[in-house]
Design a protein around this nucleic acid. Structure first.
Lengths: 239, 239
DNA sequence: TTTTCACTCCCCAGAAATGGTGAGGTATCG
DNA sequence: CGATACCTCACCATTTCTGGGGAGTGAAAA
């Protein structure tokens, strides 16, 4: 068991960790500390590619990427819609794809129990911190009850570190949309046509187009749908 | 000073808090516990409207809303771009609007020292948990060094509670998309035109349209952009 | 004071998306 | 075994979006 006083120590060490290697060795020793099978921190980017640190085997990570499991992985799909940390048992494993995924995962020595903390950062950054183990439901519940707060805190420390290491992640963040551009993007994301948006905002459709185009330019988007998608995932608009 | 053992107690109490009133009374007693001027949890929606709980005076909250201070408040603007909790001293108070805002805030008995934890949830939800006080820089630094981890954890507990109280924020029962529909929505969200998507997926554009339309139907969307926006904010696709 | 930026308005022509309808094959689930 | 869901292809006419232009105001920043 990891006591509260150990938490201080762990976080101190984590704060001093340097580079990806530092994070990797931190997560390994943390895994040992918790005495569980796996501990993983990773984030998901636009292509579904995963990067991060953790104790999953190389084979499993390769298999995961090669099979594009992020599209069916209930952990990713489920956590993306939640704020709360989630026990894997609460997820929906009923689809065929999910069951297949689970079966393959087991072959690669991924434990049957899991607890994942979703983490969100600026610009739609999304990451997961996952504890994984093989044991009974009761044992796992006890473990989670004991450690969930600590896991949340550690998850956030990992993400802070990861964001420090990846300045690429937020390069063109500075481009904020003007209020009118936000209005336009928001209404478009709500399904309004350009004519309806212009009407709602009480401006001409021509003017509206200027906003859409300047928003598209700022967001580096290829078309309106792309601009709305980017604005959404960067958290610039809320629908 | 709030000890680590008190933290457990505080979080236990918070978890049992019921409704907005429960959160409000929790935050007041937490403020007393920390012995600081103010403690505030609030979230910001697309229109800039604020809701939440805290110990700022009604007058200040009204003034803030009426003056639309969220558009110039360096705390909001600064935290929106970051993941890390931030000491108000690190923010950019140099613009004229910011200085004016600070002057008015002081009139309304907002303290000179602040520490804000940005929190992000699904659908671009954004919230802030702020500790505010009047004291010297040294005293404040000591307070933060002592309590920042606790503040992060409490911030997240408040947000969990707030999300529970706001079912509007939770995505509606998500009817899931078929793999091909996910492919289509994903590529559209990446800015591809229909022709490009069809080409990428090696299907005819006619077939692609069937996917788009059935996705639109499932998502209750009015057009493609709307469908992509909904798929994104429901976490059905990741871009 | 000059420059920058947000906001507003206008035209045109070609490219792209949409709405409605129809049809056939293959899995999977109960 | 039948219902259901998924994947694939096609046509038509109409609406909507897009990519180029150009121009003037006022407020704020340098």
């Amino acid at each position: 068991m990891v006591t509260n006083s150990r938490l201080e120590e762990i976080l101190e060490r984590l704060e001093k960790a340097d580079g990806l290697e530092g994070l990797q060795s931190s997560i390994v020793s943390l895994r040992d500390e918790f005495a569980i099978d796996h501990l993983v921190y990773h984030w998901v980017d636009s292509l579904g590619a995963h990067s991060g640190v953790g104790t999953y085997s190389l084979e499993w990570r390769q298999k995961y990427e090669q099979q594009q499991f992020h599209r069916v992985d209930p952990v990713i799909l489920g956590c993306y819609q939640r704020f709360h940390p989630v026990d894997w048992k609460q997820l929906d494993w009923s689809t065929k794809a999910a069951r297949h995924f689970l079966r393959v995962a087991t072959e690669y020595e991924v434990g049957n129990q899991g607890y994942s903390v979703p983490i969100r950062g600026p610009n739609g950054q999304f990451a997961l911190f996952t504890a994984n183990h093989t044991c009974s439901d009761e044992e796992w519940s006890a473990f989670i009850e004991e450690h969930r707060r600590m896991l949340v805190l550690i998850a956030h420390y990992f993400n802070e570190k990861a964001l420090e290491l990846e300045p690429d992640r937020a390069p063109e963040a500075a481009q904020n949309l003007s209020p009118r551009e936000v209005d336009a993007m928001t209404l478009l994301a709500m399904g309004y046509s350009r004519a309806q948006v212009a009407d709602t905002l009480s401006i001409s459709e021509h003017t509206l187009r200027v906003y859409i185009e300047s928003a598209r330019f700022k967001l580096g988007a290829l078309n309106t749908t792309h601009a709305v998608a980017r604005a959404l995932s960067r958290g610039l608009i809320v629908v």
